[in-house]
């Protein structure tokens, strides 16, 4: 399984702060890489924990139009997260949420809200990396 997440938007939608990251579990036990050059190898336990947060059966049933309605009725100026799950058998599904939709996601697919929290923390690590590269 491979998970991609792209963070955009926020109060200013800075182009340099768009995070385009991939969590690849084929790289044993798992690796996060971001297009700006950031990489982080996950410890075995973290890789297992992150993978468990995504239930593919439930994830692939999520209707993105329903999420769009939730997003539309929510606050403005939030960060947008596009999350795509790619299965080893070739199946792919993606959803778009805002950074304040963790509870909604948790209600749809237990663990998915926690994945969003994890992705947000990873984005902060990527931010620190980008700032450190300046």
């Amino acid at each position: 399984m491979r998970i991609e997440f792209v963070r955009s938007g926020g109060p200013a939608a800075f182009p340099g702060m768009v995070m385009d990251a991939t969590v690849d579990f084929a790289a044993n036990p798992g690796r996060v890489s971001e297009k700006g050059g950031y990489t982080r190898d996950l410890a075995s336990q973290e890789a297992q924990d992150v993978q468990k947060l995504i239930d593919p059966t439930l994830f692939f049933r999520i209707n993105n139009k329903d999420l769009a309605k939730k997003r539309e009725s929510g606050p403005r100026d939030l960060y947008q997260y596009d999350i795509a799950v790619h299965m080893d058998d070739g199946r792919t599904h993606s959803i778009t949420v805002s950074d304040m939709m963790g509870e909604t996601l948790e209600g749809i697919s237990p663990g998915l809200g926690k994945f969003l929290d994890w992705a947000k923390q990873e984005c902060q690590r990527i931010t620190n990396y980008k700032v450190g590269q300046r």
Partner: peptide
């Protein structure tokens, strides 16, 4: 215009309208 943030991408007119899926 910053090495981390990038350059302000806002267009000032319709000729430079940006089509994107990001940021709604």
């Amino acid at each position: 215009n910053d090495p981390v943030l990038g350059k302000d991408p806002q267009p000032a007119d319709m000729q430079h309208f940006v089509n994107t899926m990001q940021d709604n």
